[in-house]
């Protein structure tokens, strides 16, 4: 159980998060409630470990997720006593706990006011700025959140997390070109992130299939780039399920549609669609690999257990569509 403290609890499954949250009382008990910074203490008690504080931070998140607000509060007190209430990260966690404990919209508004007060004192407090954006978004004010994010990214354009959140907000509003632009910024900052490549492929596919894209001729360009993005993500990560899933979906759509028969050469810098035989080969490859992943994940073979169940189920469904089509 010990190493999972160091993972971000958002990535944990609900069951794992609950298990983690239930260790909170034991952790709180086993570590001293006040940390002395005197030299004597550190000589006697051994050096202070930074993992300990990451552990508390993750415990707070796990506890909030599982509804154990009291334990979260106690963990937060530990962090406050160590780093002080005016530490930026602690301020953000404090706000998070307050948000989670708010019962109605009025209390959330109060938290929002508090964030704005902190930001008016120190406008480079990025953790608080991000909390404010997240709160705006969860209160349903997505366009406010987007403009606040744009402002944040104006003075800190090297923040991959913020770019990807912006992409997500734009996507939720149906602004595909903007979402794609923001996701490309993430890639510029993390060029070998295969999940971002695959995500960008998904965005391209969504943009291609959205209504209206066929009319203005960008359909084919988006589809071509989607194929390439998924291929790149598989190239970077051999057994990446989402990459194969997307590749299969895109090539299937292309093969069944009219595009592949009449490949137009685009000249204004877009990618050209691969020819039909390549698409067929890619489709074959993706189908075979997906089938293998589904089979092995279902059998819980060693080294194949890491896939999320929902992903595997979706892949199985996609494969099932194929076989039913053949039977008919």
């Amino acid at each position: 159980m010990a190493p999972s403290f160091l993972y971000h609890p958002v990535q944990l499954s609900p069951a794992a998060a609950l298990e983690l949250a239930q260790t909170a009382p034991a952790v709180l008990k086993s570590s001293p409630s006040s940390v002395s910074s005197s030299p004597l203490f550190s000589l006697v008690g051994g050096p202070e470990k930074s993992e300990q504080w990451i552990q508390f931070e993750n415990l707070i998140l796990a506890c909030l997720r599982t509804g154990d607000d009291q334990a979260a509060r106690k963990c937060l007190e530990r962090l406050v006593s160590r780093f002080g209430a005016d530490n930026e990260r602690v301020q953000a966690l404090d706000g998070l706990v307050k948000e989670a404990m708010a019962n109605n919209n009025g209390e959330l508004e109060a938290v929002l006011k508090e964030y704005e007060r902190i930001l008016s004192e120190n406008d480079t407090n990025i953790p608080i700025a991000k909390r404010r954006i997240a709160l705006l978004r969860s209160m349903g004010r997505a366009s406010d959140a987007a403009s606040a994010l744009v402002e944040l990214l104006d003075f800190s354009p090297t923040d991959a997390e913020a770019w990807s959140e912006l992409s997500d907000i734009y996507l939720s509003q149906g602004l595909y070109p903007q979402a794609i632009y923001a996701m490309e910024e993430v890639l510029v900052l993390a060029p070998n992130a295969w999940n971002i490549h695959a995500r960008l492929g998904e965005l391209q596919y969504m943009a291609a299939t959205a209504s209206g894209s066929a009319a203005n001729g960008s359909h084919q360009k988006h589809m071509a780039e989607a194929v390439k993005r998924f291929s790149r993500s598989i190239e970077l990560c051999d057994d990446y399920l989402r990459g194969y899933y997307g590749l299969k979906l895109v090539t299937k759509t292309l093969l069944s549609g009219e595009d592949a028969k009449t490949p137009k050469q685009t000249d204004e810098g877009g990618f050209a669609l691969p020819d039909r035989s390549t698409l067929e080969k890619l489709h074959e490859l993706a189908t075979a690999k997906l089938a293998e992943i589904v089979r092995r994940a279902a059998a819980k073979e060693r080294g194949w257990r890491g896939y999320a169940e929902a992903d595997v189920a979706a892949a199985r469904e996609l494969l099932a569509q194929d076989t039913s089509a053949v039977q008919r």
């Binding site: 003075f155 800190s156 354009p157 090297t158 632009y181 490309e184 890639l187 510029v188 900052l189 060029p191 490549h197 780039e225 204004e268 810098g269 877009g270 990618f271």
Partner: peptide, 20 residues
């Protein structure tokens, strides 16, 4: 950070398509 942004665009330009 704007300068750093330019540096990373320059270093990782290959992940982008030509138009972007």
């Amino acid at each position: 950070r704007s300068l750093a942004h330019g540096v990373s665009v320059r270093a990782n330009h290959y992940v982008l398509s030509r138009s972007s």
